[in-house]
């Protein structure tokens, strides 16, 4: 899948062409016969010929499950990792040969990180990072105080970093990412592990920042569908190192709109049956068991409404109770299922 639109008018904020990244695993591996002898280096592919282009001013999302290659791509884009092959330009500069130029124009915020030295206060930590971008003290501290106010951290400006809650720490980390007013901001799961309210504050800020800073670009990785749908101008779906689809949220959803999407809630379904094309007309199906309630949420993408009937009969035959059945408007979740072949939380599927 190539995520580069035709007819580029200006220098892209992010331009990746045929980017692959593999790691060599040299650990001793257990053979099938149980022996523990060296099996030789094994190549683990994290990114497989990824191409994408993000325009200045765009809020671009990378949506994929854990291990899809999102963070690997972000590391390459932010100059922390070299691609095994392919070329990457960020803010008009090559990330391999012109890393220094790239670094002046980017910043990155990762979710779930502990950034800063525990022994410093919030304000000191942010001041320290501002110095790495060469900001003069006065303007830097003024900007820091304004951001602390915006994020509701002003009262904690003089609190040591090791005393902050997870949400506060992430807000501080987020402010750090804005200190150099980056042309391209990489957000790697920025709301990971945050409560609803803090995640909301961060999402609102991203939108507002983009509005107030025309021409700034955000590349967001997430596995929260709603976050991607709410924020992103365009979304690339990535799985197992490959970009499988790239479009606006509406454009992606249109791919499923010619199909019928059903949500089924079933009880007493001990194990999901193997699909193996046993229900004609059903293109994708995902099973999400909820052990706490004993119920299974089933999402079905079918060619037409009638295709779901044999499935329901099959489920009843297996002793399952159908608690709820509804035909729904497709969401990004359904697009993901359609494109990838399994739900975001699943490891395998139909």
């Amino acid at each position: 899948m190539n995520a580069i639109p035709d007819g580029r008018a200006r220098e892209a904020a992010v331009l990746a062409q045929g980017v692959s990244r593999w790691f060599t695993d040299t650990r001793r591996q257990r053979h099938q016969d149980g022996s523990d002898a060296p099996a030789g280096p094994r190549r683990v592919v994290a990114l497989d010929r990824v191409s994408l282009e993000v325009q200045p001013g765009e809020l671009f999302g990378l949506l994929g499950p854990n291990g899809a290659g999102k963070s690997t791509l972000i590391k390459i884009l932010s100059t922390l990792l070299l691609p095994s092959e392919g070329t990457v330009r960020v803010a008009g500069y090559d990330v391999v040969r012109q890393a220094h130029q790239v670094r002046r124009r980017i910043n990155m915020v990762s979710g779930g990180e502990t950034v800063g030295y525990g022994i410093l206060t919030v304000r000191e930590t942010l001041w320290m990072f501002s110095q790495f971008y060469g900001l003069a003290n006065g303007p830097a501290l003024k900007m820091i105080d304004e951001y602390l106010e915006t994020f509701g951290l002003a009262d904690n400006a003089h609190t040591r970093v090791n005393k902050l809650s997870t949400g506060m720490r992430q807000k501080m980390n987020f402010i750090r990412g804005l200190l150099n007013d980056p042309d391209v901001l990489f957000l790697d799961e920025p709301t990971l592990g945050l409560d609803v309210q803090t995640a909301r504050i961060i999402r609102d800020f991203i939108r507002d920042w983009m509005r107030r800073r025309p021409g700034r670009t955000v590349l967001l990785t997430t596995h929260y569908m709603a976050e991607a749908e709410e924020l992103c101008d365009r979304i690339a779906i990535i799985d197992r190192g490959r970009i499988l689809a790239c479009d606006t949220p509406d454009g992606l959803k249109r791919r499923v709109q010619s199909h019928s999407v059903f949500r089924i809630e079933a009880a007493r379904l001990d194990a999901p049956p193997e699909a193996d094309g046993r229900w004609p007309g059903i293109e994708r199906i995902s099973w999400e068991p909820h052990p706490a309630t004993g119920r299974t949420r089933i999402t079905v993408i079918a060619a037409d409404d009638a295709a779901v009937t044999p499935l329901l009969a099959d489920l009843r035959e297996r002793g399952a109770d159908i608690i709820h059945l509804s035909k729904v408007e497709p969401t990004l979740e359904d697009v993901f299922l359609q494109v990838v072949g399994r739900g975001l939380g699943e490891h395998s599927g139909a």
Partner: peptide
């Protein structure tokens, strides 16, 4: 609250 403090500098 020092059991899990992180103080590096």
């Amino acid at each position: 609250g020092l059991i899990d403090q992180v103080t590096e500098h």
